[in-house]
Design a protein around this nucleic acid. Structure first.
Lengths: 341, 341
DNA sequence: AAAGTTTGCGCAAACGTTTGCGCAAATCGC
DNA sequence: GCGATTTGCGCAAACGTTTGCGCAAACTTT
């Protein structure tokens, strides 16, 4: 509504002076700045983002969160908490959140490219990082500010990320179950080459190797991340194998939920017959019976940190890249117990 | 990157012609339009939103989804599914989703006012409507396009909304339990004057009245929507009352979850001792044991319709206001059964 | 073939801001 | 008290579009 020119006219100044005063530039005396700021306040002046954006070619005032369709985060409470955290990380910076919801079938990379070239956002937040991720490569080469939630496999790439330490957590889960006497392990994992799959698997393998116990066996079962029927079938196969594993680690909670369900339908009791441990601590994990033992990595604060890191990327592009590895906390519930004898 | 001027220069035309051709205006011969469009395609031209916005004062290209902090939708899978649906409703319109995440303690109304005056969005989507909602009043008076998810209590206000038919659903729930022999009912509700509270309560009261059975009793217990401890306590009081209700209706699923938990801690079995019915069909409702009987209102498609309605509001502001009342489907699980004798 | 209409397109202004350059006045150094 | 520097501020251009107006050429009508 009110423009810089209105302020200038009212004060008998030029638009340039008002602009500079508001931006806190040099060579504007404190008294003038104060008058200008007071009037701006009074008139409810807010800079026109479009105009600012146009002149500078930067500063759209938006941080884009890229979400892809299958799933989006629909699985559980995750997204709401994540957005809440991001909001807090961006608060007070004048940067708003823009949701780039990518329809199924559209190339995520082309949408990202479009956002970058049209400057629809000043920076991006990427989830679902895969081991080799063209989005990351592109954004680095374009020199565009971004932060990923999750990593790519290659080390040393110049980008900022926040991730949870799946390797440590899965090693901890293995050790916990080993200590309870379990020797026949199974890991339920996914087909998609997400980086977290690598890290979490690595945790189990490392812990196993450290034990060096020849009695320990591990079978790895793979299923699709999204196809429900295929998931059920894979779990079913795993639970009817002979010999049956007694300790099941799943890559994330919703897979563990499948295990709980199939076990129930097979009249296997958890944790008496099999122990199950998940990862993520989704809301359902607490509601399930038995309650699911899992790992919690505080989505809210990790999202907040992601937001803060992005702000830093945007505002001081030359600052060093940051990264944050969060150690998830084991949440003990009732889905694990001593190995059956 | 590529601008309209680049195209004009390359074709020996003026910027005006290119602009008009791309916008599909009159008085541009088909042949010229085709040439222009082809080159635009080839050069990867995308209009600069900031410039478009600046000239027209409209058309920021964003639809704002207003989310307030306590909760946001963190409770369950709701938000992810909702956003997914909205994305589909806005797809192909060139309108992106902008998240107005309102920090706790900030006035939602002032944020909305700011968005409207700075034209940061072309339209808004509002959730959490309360019986009397100043946001709705303000947006109507400002003539700003918006759609609410939920209604206000007053009828006949000129705005578009999408809501679920809580009245019908709660009447159905009552009837179901009545038919199973239940006579001592309880309704667990919230303190906040949300409109859905009114409608859902109304459903129970109406069904009760229709029966006109003097043996039926209904106690209504009220608790805070967000305070966990208070919720537990209210549920505890309800389940230790004498005589204890045998049929418990809760305003939404997460309250029903509380009932399930407290019942378990009191060694009451569901559904043998008490029946519980929720509303919303959150993910945990399926995972809980016993599975929660509840109502599902297809968040995804109602969000998609909300998105479509907003597009209509934005593009044809003079079109009639629309509304959509969705009849939720009863999802039968294991948390309800015959009244204990 | 003259008058009127339509077609195809360009000119230039406008949207609200930022910023390089410049200029007069004030202040400083000595 | 004179030259040099600093301070305070304005002019005007630029960012990429859209759009009212106008004009010449091409058609149509009579």
């Amino acid at each position: 509504m009110a423009t810089i020119k209105d302020i200038a006219r009212a004060l008998g100044l030029s638009a340039s002076t008002v602009s500079r005063a508001l931006a806190g530039h040099d060579r504007i005396p404190e008294a003038t700045r104060a008058r200008i700021q007071a009037l701006a306040q009074e008139m409810g002046y807010a800079p026109n983002r479009a105009a600012q954006n146009l002149v500078g070619g930067r500063n759209s005032g938006f941080a884009g969160l890229v979400l892809t369709d299958p799933g989006y985060g629909r699985e559980d409470s995750y997204l709401g908490e994540y957005i809440s955290g991001l909001g807090h990380g961006l608060a007070e910076t004048g940067i708003d959140l823009f949701l780039a919801a990518i329809p199924a079938g559209q190339s995520e990379l082309s949408v990202i490219r479009n956002i970058v070239t049209t400057r629809r956002a000043d920076g991006l937040i990427l989830g679902r990082t895969s081991e080799v991720d063209p989005r990351v490569d592109y954004l680095i080469s374009a020199g565009f500010p971004f932060v990923t939630h999750g990593r790519v496999l290659a080390d040393g790439l110049p980008y900022s990320w926040v991730d949870t330490d799946g390797t440590a957590a899965f090693a901890e889960a293995f050790d916990l179950l080993y200590a309870l006497g379990h020797r026949r392990f199974a890991l339920l994992t996914i087909e998609e080459p997400m980086t977290f799959r690598h890290h979490r698997t690595e945790g189990v393998l490392q812990a196993m190797e450290r034990r060096g116990d020849p009695e320990v066996s591990l079978t790895i079962a793979t299923t699709s991340r999204y196809d429900r029927a295929q998931r059920q079938e894979a779990v079913h196969r795993m639970l009817t194998a002979d010999p049956r594993p007694t300790a099941i680690l799943t890559l994330f909670d919703s897979l563990a939920m499948n295990v709980l369900q199939v076990a129930e339908s097979l009249s296997l009791s958890v944790p008496e017959d099999i122990s199950v441990i998940g990862y993520d601590n989704i809301t359902s994990a607490a509601m399930a019976r038995p309650g699911l033992t899992t790992f919690d990595s505080d989505t809210f604060s990790s999202a907040r940190e992601t937001g803060r890191m992005l702000v830093e990327r945007i505002q001081t592009p030359d600052a060093e890249q940051q990264s944050l590895l969060i150690r998830p906390k084991l949440v003990l519930r009732a889905s694990h117990g001593p190995a059956p004898s």
